[in-house]
Amino acid sequence: MEALIIEGTTKTPNVNFDSTKGVLEIKGRSIPENSIEFYKPLVDWLEEYAQSPASKTQVNVHLEYFNTSSSKCILDVFKKLETIHKNKYEVQINWYYEEDDEDMLEAGEDYESIIRVPFKMIEIVD
């Protein structure tokens, strides 16, 4: 599979998915009015990737803001990762949050409690 690269905008994050290395990065802001439209290519890509994933998949989520409409799509992304993990592949989600951003930390913990994939909460200190 080729890499999936989606350039970020003021309302949508940068997405970089190197399927050979098994590294997916989502970075920036995710506040579009229509998040389904934005996340569909990524969810579809993951669906295909899940057929023959890398031995280890590492996902780095580094969002400054995300809206509630994105929150469901992010859950869909994580559910695809959960399937890969269930199939005995190693999956790790790194959830980055900025120092003092308790809301973002809590959001990560919400996902951690719903999705059966190892999470790591990483605080970014300026």
Binding site: E33, S69, K72
Partner: peptide
């Protein structure tokens, strides 16, 4: 409540989903 809606409700055609 947030986690329940997040995990159990589909996004409406309007794009919301009752989480706002």
């Amino acid at each position: 409540m947030y986690k329940f809606i997040l995990n159990h409700q589909k996004i409406s055609a309007k794009g919301g989903g009752g989480l706002g």
